[in-house]
């Protein structure tokens, strides 16, 4: 299994994969606790320009750790134990993310790669307005920008994510959950990054709002051509929106394939089990409920 996953990544290491924007090779992340826990084990994947790559898995499978490590946002005691992360800039330069110094890393984050977190309420500062937070990010990364330009850009990104620019003066708590998540996305695309990592961006939202946000993400991707790494436990959702999906189990990527292939015939039993966990909305009941199938103790720890 792993061999098929690693094969494309190995070639990507020499920059062979065309259109790749991010290459992760054999990445391992270890939590230095007693005893050390390997949260991500030998993960390899390639993110192509303009693609939505889904990262699916259940709680504790290491998907969030992987996403944080790619961004080097992981905090000790977590550490990258091995592997390489290479960012292929649009200009043709390759950046070794793990070798970046503190200053370069700050410039790299948000400029090239930004993140949308799950809890928008926690990620937004509750005591300042949306305008101040957007302006803050812009001024930090684009020191030369004029006031008018900052304002114009802030209005522009809000409009793009479908939020009325009049909301610039609002505080986060004055916005609805969906609106906050939109503001988060606006903030993430402020500097036109080439990659956006989204960690369960819609999990806390109602289905209808979730659908609106997803629609927005896909539309923005089509317009601006950034790559998205979309992390969630909701496999059916990924099957709808992503080009390719990586399925993680216990820190390993057990399957990485296109959405269509996964749906048609997943090869790893865990992927099949995950797929089987979601009853179909419009299709047949399948092996689900009241068919007398077992409810075996699958969750024995």
């Amino acid at each position: 299994m792993t061999s098929t996953v690693q094969a494309p990544a190995a070639t990507a290491a020499r920059g062979a994969t065309p259109g790749a924007v991010l290459t992760v090779e054999d990445l391992s992340v270890v939590y230095e606790v007693d005893p050390p826990v390997t949260a991500v084990r030998g993960a390899s994947l390639t993110l192509r320009r303009g693609e939505i790559l889904g990262l699916a898995g259940e709680s504790g499978c290491g998907k969030t750790t992987l996403a944080y490590a790619v961004n080097r946002l992981h905090r000790p005691p977590a550490r990258v134990a091995s592997g390489r992360i290479t960012f292929h800039d649009v200009g043709g330069d390759d950046v070794d993310v793990l070798a970046l110094g503190d200053r370069e890393l700050r410039a790299f984050r948000w400029n090239k790669l930004s993140m949308v977190f799950q809890g928008a309420m926690n990620a937004l500062n509750p005591v300042t307005t949306v305008r101040a937070q957007l302006a803050d990010t812009l001024r930090t990364h684009r020191p030369g920008l004029s006031r008018a330009a900052v304002h114009a850009r802030s209005r522009d990104v809000l409009e793009r994510v479908g939020v009325d620019p009049a909301r610039l003066t609002s505080y986060p708590h004055e916005l609805s959950g969906g609106m906050r998540q939109r503001v988060m996305i606006a903030m993430a695309m402020l500097l036109e990054p080439q990659i956006m990592i989204m960690d369960e961006p819609t999990t806390a939202l109602d289905v209808v709002v979730q659908r609106e946000i997803l629609r927005e993400i896909v539309r923005l991707r089509d317009e601006l051509d950034f790559a998205v790494m979309f992390i969630t436990h909701d496999l059916p959702l990924l099957l709808e929106i992503s080009n390719r999906i990586a399925v993680m189990l216990d820190g390993e990527i057990v399957e990485l394939d296109t959405a269509a292939n996964l749906l048609a015939g997943a090869s790893h039993p865990y992927t099949r089990k995950l797929l089987g966990s979601f009853p179909s909305l419009s299709g047949e009941r399948g092996g689900f409920i009241r068919s007398g199938v077992d409810e075996t103790e699958e969750d024995q720890a």
């Binding site: 230095e32 606790v33 905090r75 134990a81 070794d96």
Partner: peptide, 24 residues
């Protein structure tokens, strides 16, 4: 304990990047 472990993790990671840079 957490602080001690965190320090160790940070050190190991620095070593890794230094090795990587040397190989490069």
């Amino acid at each position: 304990r957490h602080r001690r472990l965190a320090k160790r993790a940070a050190r190991l990671e620095r070593e890794l990047t230094r090795r990587g840079a040397a190989q490069e």
